[in-house]
Nucleic acid binder design. Structure first.
Lengths: 259, 259
DNA sequence: CGTCTGGTTGATACGACTCAAATTTGGTGG
DNA sequence: CCACCAAATTTGAGTCGTATCAACCAGACG
């Protein structure tokens, strides 16, 4: 069994490896597939931390693919309240097909300095018309993205602050793991407590206290933007975390990469 | 008009009209397009109120299209808490392309008696390969569905109980309006206060009191499953409702239906 | 060094929850 | 058509989780 992708333990990542790793959680890719993904990632730009990649009201023109760094989708209310509705980590596409809409109904902001590919509709068409496995992979990506959004609705609607934050930490840890962005039991975690508050529907003060509880329970360490999961099983347990919504079980592995 | 005993089972609309109305909020359809939608709706079944259409863990085999009645997507937590993560009204597709996944990560339940089309992957392929305008429309549907899910995240995360319920009522009223399911300023509203609670992340008791406030404010009437919006402008205002996320502004109307 | 952002702490307030019971509604069968 | 039962709505009283407000502190940085 050969594993041609950059794997855990490798320190440097070639551009595009995150997407490929991610899609390979669902389906096998051929080297041509991977080359096509790399090709489409060639046109990228950097966005400074805390700047918008695209803002509510803008006309969407590209599909964005996060190559490195973290970003978030957020919506703002007239009374000033802000909700982070999703988070993007390397390998995540922002909005397949958005460019058919007239205007963005939300903004996408960089959490860290961001390296992001700008893919034109034409490039996307090329990808989907010539690479069926990638097309399937993109559909899977869409479905998982939707499932994550639903899980967030559940998270905010039904879980306590403690469970909620625990759940978010597990989700992000697992997502980063599938793109090879974890080391040992830890990962970068660039969200401020304020971001965490906006993502979970809590206040920063309460997030602070809840994180202290998580630390006191010896479930996590979180310091200087570094997260370490001390007891994943127990953390998943208290979060009532059920990984089925991430659909990481290689649904499409029966597809032959060389067909 | 039809008499008020509009009990479950009285369907006064021809099959397929809801979807067509809905997609035409985005793009013009030709009569062939409409015929194709009607064709694909021919294979339907009924589901009793309060029964699952499909349950978490099931292998998805069809795309479901709601022809009449209301349904909901919900997720349940091990501790018994339930979150309704989305609602389906006539004209809504449940899950384009789900069948590429191994197992459902949530359940879909009927709120009322439901008339629902079961569309096979092959039929979907036929639709998308031969009817580009429908394909575009389905993409738009996907994007709007995702936008609604994000708005729910915002709703539950940041709005007060009063704003939250007001927002949900406006959303449903507008969605029903685009498929011709409103009359005057009212519509069927089959959700119980318990459903409303599960959809908004509140308790039934609190929903009850909040509805009373909305009534006292002369914003709505809600009785015997009939909703009447007394002052839509003010209701949208208190809900901080911004309709942009529904993308009802005919983005694709430039597409010629007879091209 | 001062400034700034992010994190921490304490005191207090309130929105929403809980529990429990009463009431109304809707459906069903005698 | 009424009697009955279950489901849904309503009410009241008490509690709790999370918000709010206001300092204060630590590290990063120019």
């Amino acid at each position: 069994m050969t594993h041609p992708t950059a794997a855990a333990g490798v320190f440097s990542f070639s551009p595009g490896s995150a997407v490929a790793s991610k899609l390979e959680a669902f389906t096998k890719l051929s080297s041509d597939d991977r080359a096509a993904l790399a090709d489409v990632s060639k046109n990228y730009r950097f966005v400074d931390a805390r700047r918008d990649l695209i803002s509510e009201g803008d006309k969407p023109r590209f599909v964005h693919l996060v190559l490195d760094g973290w970003a978030c989708r957020y919506k703002q209310l007239p009374d000033g309240k802000r909700q982070i509705v999703s988070l993007f980590v390397p390998g995540d596409f922002c909005d397949l097909n958005v460019y058919i809409l007239k205007a963005m109904d939300h903004s996408i902001g960089a959490i860290t300095r961001l390296k992001v590919a700008m893919i034109t509709p034409e490039e996307m068409d090329g990808l989907t018309s010539q690479r069926p496995r990638i097309t399937q992979g993109l559909w899977w990506h869409e479905l998982v993205t939707a499932a994550i959004q639903r899980e967030w609705t559940l998270n905010i609607g039904q879980r306590t602050a403690f469970e909620r934050i625990a759940h978010l930490l597990v989700e992000l840890y697992l997502r980063l793991k599938t793109v090879g962005r974890t080391h040992d039991h830890g990962c970068d975690f660039p969200l401020t407590q304020n971001d965490l508050a906006d993502a979970t529907g809590l206040t920063a003060v309460h997030v602070n206290r809840t994180l202290q509880e998580l630390r006191k329970e010896k479930l996590i360490e979180l310091d200087r933007k570094q997260l370490r999961i001390l007891d994943l099983d127990r953390l998943m347990d208290v979060a009532m975390f059920n990984a089925n919504y991430l659909h990481l079980d290689h649904e499409g592995r029966h597809l032959d990469a060389n067909a």
